[in-house]
Design a protein around this nucleic acid. Structure first.
Length: 289
DNA sequence: CGCCAGGTGCTGA
DNA sequence: TCAGCACATGGC
């Protein structure tokens, strides 16, 4: 079975930190999709073992998807600037920001707004069952993520029946934008962060937070610093700036962490989400204030 | 049951 | 520019 070098890597932290919604644990493997092709992976020490029936999924392709070409210790050293991020890094070292498909990331995070991860996973799975193509790998049966053209032609009623709620028209409108060529996602990969984010904000259902998630997880914009309710809560204790707006926290964090702020965000997000106690106990500086 | 969730769009100051 | 509000749904 093929494998590749995976130093400074935690598959578990990377797949369970809320950046991707489609990987399934089964028989000691993680099943998912890369380039619409099913693949299974497992970490063994500092090797990543994988299997796919499609030869197009080369070791180089997986290396890129899991960001194993980046020097993680070097990245972490640039964001390790205070005791809170230091604790998050110490706990989840090896977490990497995956390089996911741009369209799938955009569609997924439109569904993710004002929602919880369990339900997001269910919504996306039903979306794939309804509009994707059936694929299999060993005992795994799944569905590819639907192309924008297919979602663009879906009825709002049917999308709502999948549980998308008020996001249904947003998703369809965005799919149409992509299908019509009005938003060329291919260009965004090479664009600057500001340019990419501005373009993404032109989609319905995409505000600051979703645009930052898509820029970071789908278009390699590592300066992006998405602020959801968890990050906002943490940041208010963290930076003692409770009165700042979300935009204020966002700009402050980007300046604080620098060009790899997106990595800092992902470590902090996963850290506060996996604590057993409240965020205010982790960041006690303002207790009683 | 009530509260919460990887927020956004709209409105009115 | 910013605060306040409605919004669908289901997990817990």
């Amino acid at each position: 079975m093929p494998d590749l070098a995976a130093p400074d890597f935690s598959l578990q932290a990377s797949l369970s930190s809320g950046q991707t919604f489609r990987w399934i644990a089964l028989d000691g493997w993680r099943y998912g999709f890369i380039d619409q092709r099913p693949v299974k992976v497992r970490q063994e020490g500092d090797r990543l073992v994988y299997e796919s029936s499609d030869p197009a999924l080369s070791p180089a392709r997986l290396r890129r998807y899991f960001a194993l070409d980046l020097d993680l210790p070097d990245i972490l050293s640039t964001i390790d600037v205070d005791i809170q991020i230091h604790a998050a890094i110490r706990r989840h070292r090896g977490l990497r920001v995956l390089r996911q498909d741009g369209w799938e990331t955009l569609a997924s995070f439109i569904c993710a707004s004002f929602n919880n991860i369990k339900r997001i996973e269910g919504m996306i799975e039903r979306l794939c069952q309804a509009y994707g193509d059936p694929v299999g790998l060993n005992g795994f049966r799944g569905f590819s993520f639907p192309r924008p053209e297919v979602i663009a032609g879906a009825s709002e009623r049917r999308l709502r029946s999948l549980g998308l709620g008020y996001r249904a028209p947003y998703l369809r409108a965005t799919a149409r934008l992509i299908a019509d060529g009005a938003l060329p996602l291919d260009h965004l990969r090479r664009a600057e962060y500001d340019t990419a984010k501005r373009a993404l904000l032109g989609c319905e259902g995409v505000g600051d937070k979703v645009a930052d998630c898509v820029a970071l997880f789908g278009f390699e914009k590592y300066e992006a610093f998405p602020i959801d309710v968890w990050m906002e809560r943490a940041m208010r204790y963290y930076f003692r700036h409770r009165r700042m707006t979300r935009k204020g926290l966002h700009d402050y964090a980007r300046a604080h962490f620098g060009p790899w702020a997106g990595y800092a965000q992902q470590y902090l997000y996963h850290y506060v989400r996996t604590l057993r106690h409240k965020v205010s106990d982790t960041f006690p500086a303002l207790n009683g204030v």
